[in-house]
Amino acid sequence: MSSANQVAERDAPFQLRGNSFTMMVLKVNAPNSQDFFPQLNVKVRQAPNFFRNAPVVLDFDELPDTVVFDLAAFVAQVRAHHLLPVGFQGGPRPVQEAALAAGLTPMPTGRAAKLEVAKGPDPRAANPAATVTIEVVHRPAVVVTEPVRSGMQVYAEKTDLIITASVSPGAELLADGNIHVYGALRGRALAGVSGDINARVFCHSLEAEVVSVAGIYRVSEDIGSDFFKKPVQVFLREGVLRMDLLKTV
C-alpha cells in the first residue's frame, strides 16, 4: 500500500530524488583578454538582480590547447562579479584538471545546438529547404475541477493551468504558461515559472497570498484593496508586475 510507504518516507531523515535546473553557461573564449572582466561587468550591471549570485557553468570548449591561465584566480574574479561558478564543460586537459582542483563539477556536454549570434546573415536563410523547422506541438492545458486545498501543489509543465474551483490559502499553483482560476484565488499562483514573461494569471476573485509572473512577484500585503476580491489579471509590463481589473460585461 503506497500510503504506508509515504508515511515511511516522510519520517526518513532525507530523501534523494532527481531534479533538473536551468543554469547559465559562461562561454570562456579569451580568459586572458584585458576586456574580459570589464565586459562581464557591463553585462552583469544590465540586470543586477537577475545575475546576483546566479550559478553558472564555465564552458571551456573553445579554448585553444595552448592556453595558459590561472584558473583559481579567474574563478575568484568571476565570483567578484556576483556569479557563482559551479561546474565546467570541455576544455584542454590541464584546464579541466585545474577546474576539478578548484572544486568545479564536470558537466555532461550533451548540450543543445550552439547559438549562432553576431556572425552576420546566415547564407542558408534564403534557402527554405535547408532551414530547420520547429514543429510546435499543442500541449493541452492542465484542468483541475476540484478545490485545490492547503498543502497541495499543482504544476502545469510547459502549458497552462485552469482551475474551475477555488484555491485555498496554503495551496500553490505553478505553470510554465498562464494560470486561470474560475473561483477564489487564496493561495499562491506562479505563472511563467520557466521564465515566460508573457504568461499571465487570471482569476475570478483575487485574494492570493502571492502572485508571480516569471519570478516577479507580489505578496498579499501589496495587493491593493482596489483589486482585492475582484476579477483580476496579473501580467508583466517592462519588468514590472501589473494588475488590471477584468471587465465583466
Binding site: 500500500m1 503506497s2 500510503s3 509515504q6 476540484e146 478545490p147 485545490v148 486545498r149 492547503s150 498543502g151 497541495m152 485555498s168 490559502p169 496554503g170 495551496a171
Partner: peptide
Amino acid sequence: VRDSDRILGVLASRSRRAE
C-alpha cells in the same frame, strides 16, 4: 480552518478511495 482544508486535500489524494 486551514488545517481542515489540508486534511481535505489529504483525503482527496491519499485515502484508499483516492489511490
